[in-house]
Amino acid sequence: MLRYVELYFKLVGAGIRAQLQYRFAFVMRIVGMITAYSGTAITMWVMLYQFQELGSWNFYEMLFLFAIAILSWGFCIILFFHFRSLDTYILNGTFDRFLVRPINPFFHFMAMKFDVAAFGQFIFSIFIFIWVSIELGIDWSFGKFLFLLASIVGGVLIQGGLLVIISALAFWTTKSEQFYWVVMYPARNLTNYPLVIYPKFVQWFTAFVIPFGFVNYFPAAVILGKETPFFPENIGYLAPIVGIVFFVIAYYIWMLGLSRYKSTGS
């Protein structure tokens, strides 16, 4: 286990050094990320300019909801985002190199890439957290802060788990990138807004099938003291557990897919 931690940092360190060779590209990507997220935040502001509330959530509460999603997505990009392009590795035959080395292939594939551009997500979401905390006067007790961290970890595992499942589809269908754009990209957009506004079956689906509700909606409701109609009160406390369970399931699906994998055989 310890060997794996050491190995992860070694592999990742090499990746970071490689990316920092292109300083300008690095900075521009961060600027791009922040611009894109600010765009969504401005859209929310314009939307609520006349209406004040969306399903009883005001602008600052929605920003908070958005920031939780962005922060955990930032970690997710670092750790798992490259899983979506597993199909390219399989089709090119370059996936085989992950199999011939004496370490767990899942781990090896995970440590292959470490995307430092996620700094954009961190800068944006931390700025929003501070701003919203001041505007809404959230009093950050130690327990609350700890819960926020725990639910971020849960959110990373849920979104990472879905990325892992999507990549595993490539073992059966030789497609994965497209599934990301069809399933996950829209799902992420959907959860930028409070789930309460969606039809019941969508809410139910995002709570119990693909548990994206636990990434930001349920935890944010706990921290901000908002109601979550149709769901038990304080269901958000389950977020870290849901994350762990979902990720373990995802891991086994991936390993199952791997056992079925046959090389392109060129």
């Binding site: 521009m28 600027v31 791009g32 611009t35 894109a36």
Partner: peptide
């Protein structure tokens, strides 16, 4: 060289 930021706008 880099178009990040521009396409987001």
């Amino acid at each position: 060289v880099e178009t990040g930021g521009i396409e987001d706008i």
